[in-house]
């Protein structure tokens, strides 16, 4: 199977600032792929280059087997991070307009827009102007505008931001549906739980450079196993755990990493004595842990370089 997207040695500079630095990666066809990274890491710049909104200064980008992304522009779907609609346009019109811009003929686009909107529970809103809609509805309209032309590769930049739980589920189902239909979905996020739940594979970009990439299990491999607990009681007490290396305390749940040679069994016994445990799970680390760990390692390395 060919890869939906291949980047090789891609670099993009804005003046003296290097936004993306020698980035190489492969996104296999038909998977859900996460672009991870902090704000300003270079995710959006990478996406914009893939969409040929920007052009890279060096390196090659191959999209759907074409070296020139412009050639396959109509087979791509893109939902930018900051989402806007024409306020004065009717919902059905704007969805159809996006479809037409992607090369659909007028009647097909009009029909499809109505079908999609109805399917997504906006059947009563076909003739209403976008300005009358709530934010969640607006986002639905935007995602429909992104997928109306049945793209082979869909890129969603922070698709979950600003969505309530119900709409978040709608978005998740839409992404899964696209995968079932054989499309490739790339989405960027800095919420690791979403990536962990949805992605088959992912990459992380840090300060313009690739930090890691691969399937989720590949990414987690080589990282320390951790203990995930849910508890009631004083979370501060957890810091006293003998053999503790690091802890991500979320208040009523926590992820705990032990020093080499410390037994998880011993930790469990200690925890049972000190907090009201509701669950205990020992296994591979969360993507969140890998992410935070990677950022810290990189920053530490960077600080060392600076110091020298």
């Amino acid at each position: 199977m060919t890869d939906a997207l291949v980047l090789q040695g891609v670099t993009k500079r804005f003046g003296t600032f290097t936004a993306v630095d020698d980035l190489s990666l492969r996104v296999p066809t038909g998977c859900i792929y996460g672009f991870l990274g902090q704000n300003g890491a270079g995710k959006t710049t990478t996406i914009r280059m893939v969409m040929s909104i920007f052009h890279q200064d060096s390196g090659t980008i191959s999209v759907l087997g074409h070296n020139n992304a412009v050639e396959v522009k109509d087979r791509l779907g893109y939902l930018p991070e900051e989402k806007g609609l024409y306020k004065k346009m009717k919902t059905a019109e704007i969805v159809a307009y996006f479809g037409k811009l992607k090369g659909m003929d007028t009647s097909t686009a009009n029909e499809k827009a109505k079908t999609l909107l109805t399917q997504y529970g906006l059947g009563d809103w076909l003739d209403k102007k976008c300005e009358a809609m709530s934010k969640g509805m607006g986002q639905k309209v935007q995602i429909l505008g992104t997928i109306i032309h049945e793209p082979d590769l869909v890129i969603l930049d922070e698709p979950f931001s600003g969505l309530d739980p119900v709409n978040r589920d709608v978005m998740r189902d839409t992404i899964l549906q696209m995968k079932r239909e054989g499309r490739t979905v790339i989405f960027s996020t800095h919420v690791m739980e979403q990536a962990e739940q949805l992605c088959d594979a992912a990459m992380m970009i840090h300060k313009g450079k690739l930090a890691f990439d691969g399937t989720i299990s590949e990414i987690k491999a080589g990282h320390d196993f951790g203990i995930r607990i849910a508890f009631d009681g004083d979370g501060e007490a957890l810091k006293q755990l003998p053999g503790l290396s690091r802890i991500n305390n979320q208040g009523r749940s926590a992820e705990i990493f032990l020093k080499d040679g410390t037994s998880p069994q011993a930790a469990l016994r200690w925890l049972m004595d000190h907090v009201e445990l509701r669950s205990f799970d020992y296994g591979e680390p969360s993507l969140h842990e890998v992410f935070v760990n990677t950022v810290e390692t990189h920053n530490a390395a960077h600080a060392t370089v600076e110091a020298n």
């Binding site: 412009v70 522009k73 806007g84």
Partner: peptide, 16 residues
């Protein structure tokens, strides 16, 4: 307006 509500990005992903 197009620029400030960022619709421009969607448009640019479809046309030059």
């Amino acid at each position: 307006e197009e620029k400030s509500n960022r619709i421009i990005e969607v448009l640019l992903s479809s046309c030059s």
